[in-house]
Design a protein around this nucleic acid. Structure first.
Lengths: 174, 174
DNA sequence: TGGGGTAAGTCAAGCTGCTTTACTCGGATC
DNA sequence: GATCCGAGTAAAGCAGCTTGACTTACCCCA
């Protein structure tokens, strides 16, 4: 209950200011949403600066879901948590822009294997680097008073408690 | 870097399992998104059980932005971070369903004051209670190994670092 | 052998929650 | 009185989904 933390940096706010501070009154859920929104916004901004202004986070998740070996678009739909029609449209879009390619599936049938092109692999690598760099930089900016590894652990426990062992795919929120 | 935490509960996973665990590989950003999504999903589910299946989180934010004294829909638009047309449509919708009312603005002009009806105030109170109850219950379920107050503090520092003193309004994410 | 079941893929239409564009109206400012 | 600003509204458009209906390829089995 105490607002005092074990952080080495002392609280810079007076009690009167703290009462007026919207962040101190905000629920945990709101704080999670804001932190996610800010981090993701910074991420997409940096990706745009790197020349990927045409790709949204959903595209990156699709690339990651395809992985190095590709997948059918129905499998992609399952991994992304959308209908197969939505996944098909996403693949259409990415194919038109040269990030993925539809190949005949080795197992035959109606199946088609959606695989990343060189451009797709390149984006996946760049996006991973940007995200990792962003988080490393954030840790440095926050200093030793905030342990992001600990934060990751706490978040993991929250996710497991609410989402079980295999959490659902990350989707646009509300 | 070490995956070992100071948590009193020892790590139940072997190194081989840990490598296969998607959560341990996930970036902080992803963990934030998943935790937010799960918490918000649980919240809206409980609100639906309480008879508010017709209201989405955005409506609750609007109620909160209106506050006890109401606001014009342009002001509401600014607080929600959307165009005034979008805010107007939201108010139309909520008015049709009896949650808000448009009154002539005391300051005159073209302004109209949007205020909560009894039903609106009731929802605001119920939603606040549900959210608070959910977070309290989560803290209990997680036990003493996870300090949610500490988590709040860490998130607040992240938000301040990326969003400055007055963070932007919470919006649907990507 | 052929008939039914299942799963992949694809049109097509529709919906929701926004945006952009364009306009009207009321009041302050000079 | 001209003119500018901000509130409000009307209309159209758009992105990213969904639902519904369908075709096609393969499998299993009586």
């Amino acid at each position: 209950m105490s607002p005092v933390t074990m952080d080495p940096v002392s609280d810079p706010e007076s009690p009167a200011e703290a009462e007026r501070d919207p962040l101190r009154q905000a629920e945990l859920t709101i704080l999670l949403g804001l932190a996610f929104q800010l981090l993701l916004g910074e991420f997409t901004g940096r990706l745009a600066s790197a020349g990927y202004g045409d790709l949204r986070p959903a595209h990156g998740f699709a690339f990651q879901a395809l992985g190095p070996h590709g997948a059918t678009s129905s499998e992609l739909a399952r991994r992304l948590g959308v209908t197969k029609q939505a996944a098909g449209q996403l693949v259409d879009d990415l194919e038109r822009r040269g990030y993925v390619r539809r190949e005949p599936h080795p197992a035959g049938g109606r199946r088609k294997l959606v695989v990343l092109t060189e451009a797709g692999h390149r984006h996946l690598a760049v996006a991973g680097g940007v995200l990792h760099g962003l988080e490393t930089e954030l840790a440095a900016r926050l200093g030793p008073g905030t342990d992001l590894d600990r934060l990751r652990g706490e978040l993991t426990r929250v996710i497991r408690e609410l989402g079980g062992e295999t959490p659902p795919p990350l989707r646009p929120v509300w």
